[in-house]
Simulated scan of single mutants.
Amino acid sequence: MSSMARVLGGVCVLCCSGWLAAATAACLNPKVLQMAVIPKNVRNAQVSSQSALLQSIQEESGKAVELLPATSYAAVIENLLAGKAHIAELGPASYALLSKRAPHFVPFATLSRSQQLGQYHSLLVVRGDAIYQSLPQLRGKSLALTDPSSTSGAVVPGWMVQKATGYALTHYFSRVLFMGSHDRALEAVRKGWVEAAFVASDQMPEDDKSWRVLWRSPALVGSPFVMDARLCPAIQAQLRQAFLERQERLQAWLQMQHYQYVVPVTAEDYAGVQALIAPPADGQPSP
């Protein structure tokens, strides 16, 4: 080999090595993976209820995993935007809000009771012994919601009430309370603090005769788990493995969440919810 060839070869090695190093350095490779979850119920945000999932992620990635406390859907979104969280569970609407501000967060998994795409409903509920039989009978009464960014506990109800009555939700009811989680919204109805609540069907006790459902939304795609797409490709692959390919490790966690499977999702699965958080120019909600 000529001296010129050796020089060019050396330059190539240096350049390629530098490019690979730069590419590796460009992706996120945190020492600790931080996860946040929306407060669907009081138990949901506790470390003990998420321990099997956290352990699976740690075993698959070889990294320590920490659960970030969050008291609202907005707090989870802000943790993601601030780089404090790398993985999160969001509601469909809160993911849609996040994607408008930071498209580098991608949905990759949701929970389901079958091996098909998970679905749930927004429910308008009253106590089983209440006199109310329909939405019109609740006009001027009090209502509990969960969180302003909750799909089933605020966004879909706001759309439904506007469409059905021509009134904004806050004008149709005399008092609207945001309780912070679905179980707290149910508690408000149970204790008589409010007459009705909008909650997620997957947070309702099954076959519980103490409740009456007055309205049920069309099916909604299950809440997505999202990851930061700036994470190194190997970490992203490990997260998908932990959620989707190692479900035998997750059985205790799934049982606590009242689900049986984790199924894959993409951004396209949540395209429909964009219409609910971005009404047309005439101010009327989309159907």
Rank of each mutant, 00 (worst) to 15 (best):
Y270T: 02
M35S: 04
A271T: 11
A25H: 13
V42T: 15
R246Q: 13
L276M: 13
A45D: 00
L138N: 13
S174Y: 13
S122T: 10
A271Q: 14
Q203V: 00
Q115D: 13
H182K: 05
A154K: 09
H86I: 04
S61E: 02
V226Q: 06
L276H: 08
R216Y: 04
V47F: 03
A5C: 02
R246P: 03
R246M: 03
V13M: 12
F178N: 07
Y167W: 12
V226H: 10
P285M: 00
L33T: 06
L254Q: 08
V263A: 10
T151S: 15
P205W: 10
Q247E: 13
A52M: 05
G140A: 06
R6K: 14
Y172V: 00
V156C: 08
V125W: 02
T170Y: 14
G83Q: 09
Q115L: 15
F178P: 01
L53N: 01
Q115G: 13
Y95E: 00
V125A: 05
A52F: 08
I131S: 12
V194K: 12
S152A: 15
L186P: 00
L177I: 15
Q284M: 11
S210R: 15
I277L: 10
G62H: 09
Q55M: 05
P264Y: 08
W211H: 11
A45S: 12
Y270A: 03
L14Y: 00
A234N: 05
R212W: 02
T170C: 03
L220M: 11
P107S: 13
A25V: 05
S149I: 02
A168W: 09
F243M: 04
E60Y: 01
R101V: 00
A144H: 05
L250I: 09
P279N: 05
Q115W: 09
I87T: 01
P287Y: 04
A21Q: 14
G128M: 08
L145F: 12
V7S: 10
A64V: 06
K84F: 00
M204Y: 02
V65C: 04
Q34D: 07
L239T: 04
P107G: 10
A102H: 11
V262D: 00
V37Y: 03
P285S: 01
L143A: 03
R113I: 03
L214E: 02
S210G: 14
P30I: 10
A278H: 14
A242T: 05
L239R: 08
P264W: 08
G222S: 15
A164K: 15
K141C: 00
V156L: 14
Q34H: 14
A144V: 05
A22F: 08
W193V: 06
L28V: 09
S61Y: 00
Q251E: 10
H104G: 00
L138R: 11
S51L: 13
G9C: 07
V11M: 15
W19S: 09
A168M: 07
I277E: 07
Y259R: 14
A168N: 15
T24D: 11
C16F: 11
P279W: 07
G222N: 10
R212Q: 12
P280W: 06
C12H: 05
Q260S: 13
P148S: 10
A154I: 01
A219S: 15
R113C: 03
V189M: 10
A82N: 11
A242C: 04
A252N: 09
S61M: 06
I277Q: 07
D207A: 14
Q133D: 13
A219N: 13
Y95L: 02
A102T: 01
L177V: 15
Q46R: 12
A200E: 03
